[in-house]
Amino acid sequence: MEIALTPLEAGEYIAKQSVAVTVYVDKCQGIAKQIMDSITDGTIGDIEYKANPLHPKGLSDEQHLNWVFVLDTLNFSFWPNEDEEYYVDYKDNREVGYLAMCAAFMKAHEAEIPIYDTDWMVTVTEEALGKILVSGSGHAIPLLRERFRALKESGQWLNMKHRGQMMNAVRACGPSAQSLLRSIMTIESFRDQTMYKGTKVWLLKRAQILVADVYSLLKGSTTQEVRDLVNYVDIDTITMFADYRVPQALCHLGIMEYSPELRLRLDKKEVMPYGDEMEMEIRGCSIFAVNEIFKEVIRMRLNDYKGLDWYETKRPLFAIDIDVWLWQYRRQHAEEVEEHVPFHRCREIYY
């Protein structure tokens, strides 16, 4: 693997040189307090993997892990083209974006399509995949052909390297989140790598999400042997998942601010090329900002909250949890967030 800055290193490197995006570290304490309060009142459970009703029930750990692998292989670029919103209606709810894809696969699962089987991954046609993922409006999901290619590549990797089971990949990597991350990075569609001011950086949105989902899913297994597989002592080295939605939440909450030049590009709905300097600054500063919130959470936990009756029994919290908290905050306050700051548009497979 070639030398490049890790996501954590990249975030700090980009934030220190950023011109278009400013991070207000002094405002991280307020968000950390909100997150710590969600631990106190129990609402932190809303971000757990098992809390999502659009994840299947009744699958074995092996099947469910392959399901997660398929979802994360295709988890990119859901923002709609003009007048082509991507949505799926499922059980009286209209889901949009990533959750629309989850709903589409739940409908496929109920129709007995074995999307957790690598034979399906490598044999499904682009047309068949398109029918599964089609929007309720009749429009194709964005980047259908690229999703089809990514699915084929991931299925072939799983078959050739791990006998068709993501669980074998997890076992082969041992109790290390970084080892699993390096393994996933050998799949081309997960290699979220570009240059910023002459330095190669990894941001790895989808690869890190897959590691986080493996961790979240298997730590909830009913089998001790499976839970032991994800005793990742380095799970805290996995950063937030630099996308186009969490930066909106960070701006809305006052943690980040965009320059007038960047804001003008966003207001014009300009589609930025992958690797554009401003696009990189949005994503890199998001990683840095969430890590600063994470540091504040750790400080609060060790100082302001230590000694309370629940201190030792409440769940740990990592940067990946803060990402999900922010992502859900953006969804819950979608209208006011959109009114305050647009998302940045980059039509790319890496996020």
Rank of each mutant, 00 (worst) to 15 (best):
Q193E: 15
M195Q: 07
Y196K: 05
K197S: 01
K197H: 01
K197Y: 00
K200W: 05
V201K: 00
V201P: 00
V201M: 00
V201F: 00
W202Y: 12
R206G: 11
Q208D: 10
Q208P: 04
I209S: 06
I209G: 02
I209A: 07
L210T: 07
V211G: 08
D213A: 03
V214Q: 05
L218E: 15
L218S: 07
K219G: 13
G220F: 05
S221P: 07
S221H: 07
S221Y: 14
T223A: 05
Q224H: 13
E225V: 02
V226M: 07
R227Y: 11
V230Q: 09
V230F: 09
N231K: 08
N231I: 06
Y232F: 14
T237L: 15
T237K: 15
I238Y: 07
A242W: 12
D243T: 04
D243I: 01
D243L: 05
Y244D: 00
L250T: 04
H252W: 13
G254I: 12
G254V: 15
I255N: 06
I255R: 03
E257L: 09
Y258E: 14
P260Q: 05
E261M: 12
L262E: 08
L262I: 02
L262Y: 04
L262T: 03
R263A: 06
L264D: 15
L264A: 13
R265P: 10
L266C: 10
D267M: 13
D267W: 10
K268G: 12
Y274I: 09
E279I: 01
G284I: 02
S286L: 01
S286I: 00
I287D: 15
F288N: 07
V290Y: 06
F294S: 02
K295G: 04
K295P: 03
V297I: 14
M300N: 03
R301G: 07
R301T: 11
L302Y: 13
L302G: 12
D304K: 01
Y305F: 08
G307I: 06
L308S: 04
Y311K: 02
E312D: 15
T313I: 02
K314C: 09
L317A: 05
F318T: 06
I320A: 11
I320T: 07
I320P: 01
D321Y: 01
D321E: 10
D321T: 03
D321L: 00
D323Y: 08
D323S: 00
V324I: 12
W325S: 06
L326T: 01
R330V: 09
R330H: 11
R330C: 09
H333Y: 12
